[in-house]
């Protein structure tokens, strides 16, 4: 499995990367950890003409507290997310979900930006960032913009990112009472069904909830029916009732040898319940 030939440029700054992207046109792709792109290239499912390496851009790397928000640079690796004391303290859901991605080697190399931009239907982080109501920052030739995570994922491997744009970072207000639960596909460890839940709790009662699913459908998305069912529920006691049928609201559900549509829908409910219970246990 050998990639086709391409040209390679290492960008010294985001500005330079943007210029290279413009120059390269539609045949240009960004490369950071490469753990989404390189496997595709080896199978010749992706044949870019130009790779622009942004892996070394320190300005895109790291987990930082900015005011009352947390900002995560696009080239931050899953391992760095998992090890981040800041995340463990203030948004453990992201550190925990990152720790469950793939395996140690993949986490050492794969980046949050790559995972989000590639938008594999079974990727874990998209659901987590939707649950955290993260804003995704994008820079292009015409300036910068932010997109709510819930609007960023459009379809299978399809996101709100144009040719010539760079996903630079994500930021969110940390939530402690949030959790992610996934049923891994047993070979790839991608999520067959994964649900991320962020709760606002008061005296054991849910005041607000954001719930997002990945793995089951073409792309990560919110589960509004579960969110409304959770509001006002006493948790964790009411978790099962609120999450019952959680998967049934999805328009489209993947099916393959690892799980039929019926199974995945049922697993969405199971993972939702487990995530709610874990999130609620955090108060």
């Amino acid at each position: 499995m050998i990639p086709t030939a391409f040209r390679y440029r290492r960008a010294g700054s985001v500005a330079e990367a943007l210029a290279l992207l413009r120059e390269g046109g539609p045949g240009a792709k960004l490369l950071a950890g490469g753990h989404s792109l390189i496997p595709m290239m080896k199978q010749r499912l992706a044949e870019p003409e130009l790779l622009i390496d942004i892996g070394g851009l320190l300005e895109l790397c790291g987990v930082h507290a900015v005011g009352d928000a947390i900002e995560v640079g696009a080239t931050t690796t899953h391992a760095d997310l998992a090890a981040s004391a800041l995340l463990r303290e203030r948004a453990p859901i992201l550190a925990e979900a990152a720790a469950e991605i793939g395996d140690a080697q993949v986490r050492n190399r794969g980046t949050i930006g790559g995972s989000l931009a590639h938008a594999d239907p079974g990727a874990d982080l998209p659901a987590v960032l939707i649950a955290l109501d993260a804003a995704i920052s994008i820079t292009g030739a015409d300036g910068s913009r932010t997109v709510p995570a819930a609007d960023f994922f459009r379809d299978i491997l399809t996101v709100d990112l144009e040719d010539g744009e760079i996903l630079t970072d994500v930021s969110f207000r940390p939530v402690r009472s949030a959790a992610y639960a996934k049923l891994p596909q047993r070979a790839s460890r991608f999520a067959l069904a994964g649900v991320a839940v962020a709760l606002e709790m008061e005296d054991g009662v849910c005041r607000a909830a954001r719930v997002a699913v990945t793995g089951a459908a073409s792309h990560a998305q919110r589960l509004p029916a579960v969110e409304s069912a959770l509001v006002g529920a006493r948790l964790p006691e009411g978790a099962a009732a609120a999450c019952e049928g959680a998967g049934d609201a999805l328009d489209f559900v993947n099916a393959d040898l690892h799980g039929s549509e019926e199974y995945r829908r049922a697993m969405v409910a199971v993972m939702a319940r487990r995530a709610v219970e874990s999130a609620a246990a955090r108060g």
């Binding site: 049923l183 047993r186 040898l257 690892h258 799980g259 039929s260 019926e262 199974y263 049922a266």
Partner: peptide, 20 residues
């Protein structure tokens, strides 16, 4: 022992649903 196969047995679902 595919998880779905066992889940269908436990929950009395159609054995021919979806999977090889």
């Amino acid at each position: 022992l595919r998880p779905e196969r066992l889940w269908r047995l436990i929950h009395d679902r159609d054995q021919n649903g979806g999977q090889p």
